[in-house]
Amino acid sequence: MDTSQESKKQYEKMVETVSPNSPILKNCLRAFFSGGAICAFGEGLYLYYSTFSFAEKEVSLLVSITLIAISAVLTAFGIYPKLGKHCGAGTIVPITGFANSVASPAIEFKKEGMILGMGAKMFLVAGPVIVYGTLSSVLVGIVYYFLGR
């Protein structure tokens, strides 16, 4: 087989024509409705918790905790991956997706022990989210401290 750069490029084109693309319209519709539903549910929780005498910050946190808990339970029962298959980004982008990405490696790697398995691998997927989130917040902080106020 000729593996020159030129034939590699030709082959790449051939692969592109043969391989089907993801059904992007269908996927987007599913992501819209599922992600929207999760957010609307969150809003519903927000309105419900607001009827009690909580401060606004407490209500926001309660909403997050409720969604995280629901997601962890659905992950534990193996339901979340089934939703994720159909909903795509609709179940990845909301905070439930974040919780799923923490709970699923925790469950999967508990077989390698509670410390080096579950403990060490819990943030296998979500770790970079925290890392880059923290870094961006420091960046925002520096800019705000020197320029923003």
Partner: peptide, 26 residues
């Protein structure tokens, strides 16, 4: 519903068009 849904659609387009893994999208 529609604002949250639209934010997820942006994620879906990234997922399908760029072949980014879900960790990168998060």
């Amino acid at each position: 519903f529609w604002v949250g849904g639209l934010i997820c659609v942006i994620g879906q387009i990234l997922l399908d068009k760029t072949k980014l893994t879900s960790a990168r999208i998060l």
